[in-house]
Amino acid sequence: MTEIVTPGERLALSAEYDAGTGTCVKDTFICATLVGIKRVLPAGQAEAEQRPRVEVVRSGVEPVVPRAGDTVTARVVRINPRLAAVDILCVGPKPVQQRYSGVIRVQDVRATEIDKVKIEASFRPGDVVRAEVLSLGDARSYHLTTAQNQLGVVYARSAAGVPMVPLSWQEMQCPTTKAVENRKVAKLDA
């Protein structure tokens, strides 16, 4: 049986439950902050999940906003020697509704030999990159990093316009022209 709740409605006692998404704690009660369906998740084993959690799930689309620590999928729009500017397309598996811009600074491209990184040997405009959100960054853009094995370029087209195949963590090859281009390649299957 699904129970539809509206903002301000009391859901449970805050002493007995944890407040999940779409709820807030008001005095001793957990109250809804969204219109949606009330769900109770049972308590888990972990330290943080001692109590059952109530949450309100919206049936429509919920806004997707990148947060620090999220893995995002982004497309490179511009590069210069200091950074690569990207547009965030997805947060986890969810596509974002509007444009969020991010930057991958040269020191955040890879974990080792940071000072030898060249942006133009790591990313090209049009590449699709998997990255992690470092911080909300400055007022204009999120700061992203690809300094992990599973992060980096996941999709790139060669100069001939053909999707390339990864050779190593630093190289990709065009299947038609056999040209090898440099990228910071993500290690996808792990």
């Binding site: 509206t6 903002p7 301000g8 779409g22 807030c24 008001k26 109250c31 902050t33 969204l34 219109v35 949606g36 919206r58 429509g60 689309v61 919920e62 806004p63």
Partner: peptide, 11 residues
Amino acid sequence: VAAAAIPMRDL
């Protein structure tokens, strides 16, 4: 605002 799924204290 409720239809836009913006969190509210109350109606």
